[in-house]
């Protein structure tokens, strides 16, 4: 019995976790195992946890505007640890104009304000199936 395992994390100092919690719950309701690591995670903590938990995906939530700094740091650490097969997506207060940069850094998708959990779940399932 394989399960999709996802780490949901809030990097940096942002404390607004409504979205992260709603997404975590939706993913659980879609049959996934969600490791929720809470607030104030450093990129190092996120990557280390992702490796130990052998997750398929990492979901990063940031509403403080620090995403251009924090998200690529997670990607780079994953690469350093030979764990670049873990796919990273993000959400929060992220202007569309920042999305190309984030995708170039290696983020697979940004789920901006107004995205439904249904869309997020489908995206993850599809990506997971493609990888298997």
């Amino acid at each position: 019995m394989e399960k999709i395992r996802i780490l949901i994390a809030k990097p940096g100092l942002d404390g607004h976790d409504r979205g992260a919690k709603v997404v975590a719950r939706a993913l659980r309701d879609a049959g996934m195992e969600v490791i929720y690591t809470g607030l104030r995670q450093t990129p190092e903590q996120i990557v280390e946890a992702a490796i130990q938990e052998d997750v398929d995906f990492i979901g990063l939530s940031c509403l403080s505007g620090a995403h251009n700094n924090l998200f690529p740091r997670v990607i780079n650490l994953l690469k350093e640890q030979n764990a670049a097969d873990i796919k990273v997506f993000g959400g929060g207060v992220i202007p569309q104009s920042d999305i190309p940069f984030l995708k170039e850094s290696g983020i697979v998708e940004i789920f901006g304000p107004g995205t439904s959990t249904e869309v997020t779940v489908s995206f993850i399932k599809q990506l997971y199936d493609e990888r298997s």
Binding site: G12, L13, D14, T42, A66
Partner: peptide, 22 residues
């Protein structure tokens, strides 16, 4: 900004990327 709200100076390691943003 968040570092100020959480009692960190702008040169603290956790302040990286957050200074002046919110």
């Amino acid at each position: 900004d968040l570092p100020t709200q959480i009692g960190y100076d702008s040169d603290h390691v956790l302040s990286d990327g957050e200074v002046g943003k919110v």
